[in-house]
């Protein structure tokens, strides 16, 4: 991409193609996969600002995802507040939670923030289960009746298909990528990276450490909250394990670890790996493929075992994946590709 014109042109073409895709693809399943991909990218980019750029590894982003999702869904269910308005209430709630955590934990050094982030997410999950009057407890909140989205008197969409969700997801993913780009190319990005690389050195260079960590946390949490609201409204249902569970936090981190932390495109690459993988595991695609290829007999003991268990094995496989990435690609896929590129360059010279 040496040509300076080529890059923006290619970017606009890809964007146009993504925007127009629902016109050519009818399959709701394909659109569903794309929507999940957009949501994953948004989650990853949000975590990346705090974990990748500022180096503060939150293992509790489910807290922000879940509070955003719950706030929007509760407002929609109980007060008929349109989700595109309720989502901002979610952002407000999440900002308060994030500031409370940050102002306490960022004074301390070492693993305290990581530990506190897990603890807060678990407290919120347990609260959601037990505060049945507010959250409907373990049964969750079902709210599928979306009001039509209007600008003035014109109805833009009534959400009868997946297409409006596709465009909303695409917009959210693009927004998070744009915001990350903006962070990277600003004083904020430089300060966050300096804090990640060496906190004492950063402090001596005039950077108010706690303030900048809190800025990163609130920004990251607010964007995660939007992704949570989007998820809740898209699925039409939230309950404690699916939006506040520890595995939600882990999945959000994994997007960045696999793709490459602290890089603009890492979360996109990570999502391109994780979303298809988790879908293949969940829907037993792998077992079916093995059966089709004749590797295992569907009715044999192995076949039945795989069919029964492989769909629950995603956590195990994530574990294996993390070990492999840390061993062989410590900087994620982005780091791996960069290394390849620089090697090729050296060989060319």
């Amino acid at each position: 991409m040496a040509n300076p014109v080529l890059k923006p042109v290619a970017g606009i073409l890809v964007l146009g193609a993504l925007f127009a895709l629902p016109r050519f693809v009818d399959s709701p399943y394909a659109l569903h996969m794309m929507i999940l991909l957009f949501m994953s990218i948004s989650q990853g980019q949000s975590w990346n600002i705090l974990g990748g750029y500022a180096g503060q590894h939150s293992v509790g982003h489910a807290a922000y995802f879940g509070v955003g999702a719950y706030t929007t869904m509760m407002l929609m269910h109980a007060q008929q507040v349109a989700p595109w308005l309720g989502a901002w209430a979610g952002v407000g709630m999440v900002a308060v939670v994030a500031l409370a955590i940050g102002s306490i934990c960022f004074r301390l050094r070492g693993p305290y923030f990581v530990l506190a982030s897990i603890a807060v997410a678990e407290i919120l999950r347990l609260s959601a289960i037990n505060l049945t009057g507010l959250t409907n407890g373990a049964e969750g909140i079902l709210a599928t009746d979306l009001p039509p989205f209007k600008i003035g008197a014109t109805v833009i969409t009534d959400f009868s298909t997946k297409v409006p969700f596709y465009h909303a997801g695409l917009a959210l993913a693009l927004a998070t990528i744009t915001i990350t780009y903006g962070v990277q190319h600003s004083k904020l990005g430089y300060f966050l990276q300096a804090i990640r690389e060496d906190q004492d050195a950063a402090h001596s260079l005039g950077i108010p450490i706690s303030r900048y960590k809190n800025i990163a946390l609130v920004l990251s949490a607010a964007l995660t909250s939007l992704a949570g609201s989007f998820y809740g409204v898209y699925v039409g249902f939230v309950d404690p394990p699916t939006v506040l569970g520890l595995d939600v936090s882990v999945q959000i981190m994994l997007i960045c670890i696999i793709g490459g932390m602290g890089t603009l495109w890492g979360p996109v690459l990570g999502s391109l790996v994780l979303v298809p993988l988790s879908e293949a595991l969940r829907s037993n695609l792998i077992t079916e493929a093995l059966v089709k290829a004749g590797v295992v007999n569907a009715d044999s003991r192995t076949g039945l075992f795989l069919k029964e268990n492989l769909s629950h094995a995603h956590v195990l496989l994530y574990g294996v994946l993390v070990v492999l990435v840390i061993l062989f690609m410590p900087d994620g896929l982005m780091g791996f590709f960069r290394k390849l590129a620089s090697r090729r360059q050296r060989e060319a010279v």
Binding site: Y190, F191, Q193, E197, A202, L205, G206, I207
Partner: peptide
Amino acid sequence: VRPLPKLSVVDNVMVGALA
């Protein structure tokens, strides 16, 4: 010494200048 190892040399100095 406390360089910011994953940043380039000029980016290191820019962090100081951004004060």
